[in-house]
Design a binder for these strands. Structure first.
Lengths: 133, 133
DNA sequence: CATGTAGTGAGATGAGATATCAAGTGGTGC
DNA sequence: GCACCACTTGATATCTCATCTCACTACATG
């Protein structure tokens, strides 16, 4: 919330409601979910707020295996995601290996790297161990 | 083309046209481009054929930085992409480092990895060296 | 408390992709 | 060769997701 204030945005009821809700979401979320759970807030406002939070780095956007967009709170500074293709839960991880790799790859690639995207699709432990298919 | 036949799909004129066109594309393409360049082929058919080729592994889908989908021929078996955010050109690369990383990461991640997505956004050499902004 | 402005919600609109369905074809059996 | 039938196709309608529009609201400030 403070993040938005710091960037000169107002603290409004809809924004507070959205952020409160997001903070209670462990597992990543879609815009539709948020909009459904906050029927008093207009869809447009949800999209607008999500976009602000994205720009502020509070949340990050990722893609499901089929490309459908999903979001998750950024708890760790620079991280990547695992998405369970079964239950849809999103995990965050920060493998030192990844960072080393990124630096190594920078040399192999012609041009100047300005960003990257990296997601792992998994069947999570919970889904592996039993929960009925 | 043979790939489709092998999977029991018919060899039809529209499909041939699409595949011929794709083979001439160096730099990745969007569905819209293909559809525009083949006005005699229906949009739906383009989507259908693209989907078939995707399933057959002939082409692969990637996402621009903003999430817009783009496709490219798979020339190398297992590879990743670089996308120039300036001109949109798509490059393929196969860094051994990446494969080693993937194996290393498999251990760090809870659950079973079933797939991944990895794209690098760059400003390509051509764009860096001069072409007017 | 009055004012200017950022923010909001409802609905229209736009883009991208898919579904529908009658009409058209490829390729197999003959 | 030819006829047949399931697979394909194209035009169009439709769906979904996201953004735009615009009159209205409410925040923060003086």
């Amino acid at each position: 919330m403070a993040v938005l204030e710091d960037q000169g945005y107002r603290t409004t009821a809809p924004r507070r409601a959205i952020i409160d809700l997001l903070e209670r979401k462990e597992e990543g979320f879609t815009v539709e979910e948020i909009s459904d759970e906050l029927p008093t807030v207009g869809r447009a406002t949800v999209y607008r707020t999500i976009k602000l939070l994205l720009k502020a780095g509070v949340i990050c956007k990722l893609a499901m295996m089929d490309g459908a967009p999903k979001y998750s709170l950024s708890r760790i500074e620079h991280h990547h995601h695992t998405v369970c293709i079964r239950c849809g839960n999103v995990g965050e991880f920060r493998a030192a290996t990844v960072e080393r790799l990124l630096r190594a790859i920078a040399g192999d690639i012609p041009g100047e790297i300005v960003g990257h995207r990296m997601e792992f699709y998994v069947t999570c432990d919970r889904c592996l161990s039993g929960v009925a298919s």
